[in-house]
Design a binder for these strands. Sequence first.
RNA 1: GGCUCGGUGGCAGAGUGGUCAUGCAGCGGAUUGCAAAUCCGUCUACGCCGGUUCGAUUCCGACCCGAGCCUCCA
Length: 457
Amino acid sequence: MPELRLTNTLTGNKEVFEPRDPDRITLYVCGPTVYNLAHIGNARPVVVFDMLYRVLQLLFPSVVYARNITDIDDKIIASARERGETIDAITSEFTLKFREDVAQLNTLAPSLEPRATENIEAMQQLILRLIERNHAYTADGHVLFDVTSMEGYGALSGRNLDDMLAGARVEVADYKRNPGDFVLWKPSLADDPGWESPWGWGRPGWHLECSAMIRAHLGDAIDIHGGGRDLIFPHHENERAQSCCGYGGDFVRYWVHNAYVDMDGEKMSKSLGNVRTVRELLEVYPGEVLRFALLSTHYRSPLNFSGALLDQARNTLDAFYQALRQVETVEPVALADTETEAFAALLDDLNTPKAIAALHAASKELNKANADSLALCKGRLLANGRVLGLLERFPSDWFTQGAGDGPNAETIEALLEERLAARAARDFARADAIRNELQAAGIVLEDSADGTSWRRT
RNA sequence: GGCUCGGUGGCAGAGUGGUCAUGCAGCGGAUUGCAAAUCCGUCUACGCCGGUUCGAUUCCGACCCGAGCCUCCA
């Protein structure tokens, strides 16, 4: 069995992945808060952990991948008020749109998509446990986690309580015993959304849902917990505190975090207002281009987003599909996913750039292949692509469908016929005129021994 | 201020204690009626200063620069 290596935020090291139970791998990733459209930065962890999910599936017989939907949150409440809609309408709409958007990125659906509002009871039970074990206390209508009650609080983010005190920039609510204490349950006003609880009408704190849902759906402890780097503190640190103190044990064996998508050297975020939504990008680029672009940088490095990045991704995919288009009628040799160079690269901490380099090598080989090796070379390129969730479309569709609003296929074919006749009569002036006309409409012609093909640009 | 993570050739982007990343762009060729695509060849690199070493882009230390977290955020 080949070894998978992952960088574990908790230790800071690249480690060999050793599952708790090889027959049931558990992966949990923080999902969206559904109050607006996903942007390309939100899409990064979705694609990165889809990649991890695929690799785990190739290595183990059963992988449970849970990605939560946060459907109760102050942002959602505010958004509902602003738009004059119910919370339910907002969260339903954006849950659906989120699923549609990420499906376009060739991501597999997770095994489970637990919703926060369907797990309130599990959250309340966790709070009760934490109070029982003296890790939490009630104050001023809130239930708070006492960070000093946990030995090793701060280990995930590399902080200690003194550091946090020294760097505190926030005014501390006076009902907190320690400045770092965080809310498990907070009171809601009578007309605010909320649930009955032993502590009155209220709603869960920010970090509670993931702890409770992991316990409810995956068990006391899981193999891998993923998310964006910015979740390390406080979200994952607090999640870890809740679960470790509530249930004991390891909770998570490997913490994996992706870096963000930058916009002009700055983080892309809702608060900075420099976001590009997946939905708007999909109007211009196929989802596969977005996926390729997101995989072109290693997941732990920042990815600088730009139009040039996407254009280059598209050009590269064009080249791969071009190679496949030449051999569309060749039956490829079947090659197992686990025998590909791309898979080998992914085993090393999801080295997607290296896997993509394997794609280039396979593509070049296919272009140079002779009649005897065509089927094998085609099989190799397809298998490497498949491992990455790429190159799964028919090449001719890739080039001819597109979002272009130029001439339709019939018109183009008719002009090709005319040009063919002109060339046969050595009337190159007419032939070139047709080519130029089509080029102006965004159609590129390519002559070869087998005839002329076309593609949209 | 505290903590964390980075600085690789024109650009994007891997990796390594000692002959290769890879791609795009550029340049030169092959091919082509002209193109496109493709193929062949080719140039440019490891922030700065010390240290360890036979040898450092790779290890160690200082410094400079950048980003992130410490407040909702992938």
